[in-house]
Amino acid sequence: MAIDFHKYANPTRFLRLASAVFPWVTGAAVLLLVTGLYMGLFVAPEDYQQGETVRIMFVHVPAAWMGMSVYTMMAVSAAAGLIWKHPVADLSAKAAAPIGACFTLLALVTGALWGQPMWGTYWVWDARLTSMLILLFLYLGYMALWGSFDDHSKAARAAAILVLVGAINIPVIKFSVDWWNTLHQPASVATLDGPKIHGSILTPLLVMGAAYMMLFLSVFIIRVKAEIMDRRLQIMKISQLQE
């Protein structure tokens, strides 16, 4: 199993695979985004309680999903980097971080824009919102940590440890609404006898979710490629100095 993994961790092989997948992923992202936006803005009905603000969900919920999934993927990469020292593992976590940070920021901003008309406030310090803000800070801290080391392997190590420590936050975000009373979503007080999301609203949401996933993969391939080449560039610069 470890040998198999090593095959894909080889930068050249990884780049070849990524280049082959890239046009498909990018095409799917564009197609799904257009479909999702059309469905979300024109086809989906208004919600019986929230009215037209339900359309904010189509850009809010997928962004939040991605903010959390990208972090999870970074944690797995970071662990692989620490344990097996795969050359691509640390670089892929590094490449994913700015994308995850953007999605998390969008989840926070669009959430605030929904909160003001519906809750009556842009922001509250409840467990869900606070843990999501911590996620953004973890992303920013991770990126700052990479920038603050000159030595690549030291930076990779420190950043990997930060991601893994912060990974505790992911289940906290996920279950915050069940563990504690939050404003974000009813835990025990709301009655949930009926359907949760009607198909006409669920479909655009899932299409937008898939679109954000493909968009992530597309930007991720671009960024990993840049990281691998940057690493090569740094090594060549050093070896040139030594000549």
Binding site: Y48, Q49, M118, P186, V189, T191, P195, I201, L202
Partner: peptide
């Protein structure tokens, strides 16, 4: 001193909510 509204996780178009209510399947308390 301040009142905030909470939302529940039921999302549906008004017509669906209405027909569910009429059919007596589901009583949206709102």
């Amino acid at each position: 001193s301040n009142v905030l509204a909470k939302h529940d996780e039921n999302y549906m178009p008004p017509e669906v909510a209405e027909s569910l209510r009429d059919a007596g399947h589901w009583q949206p308390e709102g």
